[in-house]
Nucleic acid binder design. Sequence first.
DNA 1: TTGCGTGCAAAGGTTTTGCATGGCA
DNA 2: TGCCATGCAAAACCTTTGCACGCAA
Lengths: 138, 138
Amino acid sequence: MENSYNTKQGELILNLIKAEEGKHFTADEIITLLANEGKKVGKATVYRHLDKLIRAGEVRKYIVEEGTSACYEYVGHNHDCKSHYHLKCSSCGELLHVQCEFLDEVSSHILGHHGFSIKPEKTVLYGLCKTCREAENV
Amino acid sequence: MENSYNTKQGELILNLIKAEEGKHFTADEIITLLANEGKKVGKATVYRHLDKLIRAGEVRKYIVEEGTSACYEYVGHNHDCKSHYHLKCSSCGELLHVQCEFLDEVSSHILGHHGFSIKPEKTVLYGLCKTCREAENV
DNA sequence: TTGCGTGCAAAGGTTTTGCATGGCA
DNA sequence: TGCCATGCAAAACCTTTGCACGCAA
């Protein structure tokens, strides 16, 4: 087991991302947001806390776009995130979180018929969101 | 149209990854593999060629694992990748091309229920292939 | 000859690490 | 008091860019 203390910084970081469960933050955004509230937290501290939360299963990390910084998202203690997919609009960049039982069937189908077990947490479906689609299709 | 010359380095890089279509390489692996054959190619040159091949649609770039370097894989130019999905094994790197009417339903469902139109050609579903799953589950 | 390609080194950006100091229990 | 946490700066990494030179057509 891991020993750890409760600290002000750890609480600040956790509260921030927990307050907006389902929303993602980059490490830098967390630092900036806290700074805007007058709470200065070091970069290394943020990374170290996120890392700890990831190992604890409370936070998920994913790459939304190649070549950019990673995103971190609070997911809580219930690990039932198997049906949680990400839809990323390649036009406006919006990230949608979709939890839908239909997508569970997708996983089962692919596992059953193609022998492949999908990791939804690693998968991002790219496409166009409603707004951009309507704007582009004219 | 883009002007370009045929060069020894470009040929070396293309031949290397083309010889093992379906396998992925990091930029560094390409440099090392070529170096092992006595062919020294600069880092920048490798990245520039990969970039060009990606734009030409001959090569795909993946993030297989967070925090590591990107992977590049030859996919050829005669692939109609618009009509099917890709399943990428994050362990062995195998790329499966899946054409299945069930997955067409996925697109329709997400469009209908979530207002999002997926671009299959841009989307890669990550997970574990049968072989790796069985090997890791032990 | 023209102008793209090459390779080195430097720059850029994100994340990690070393170390002295600060803070929790 | 013992030990973890913090924060700064430096390092570590991957990738891109600037620039002078090389090479294809």
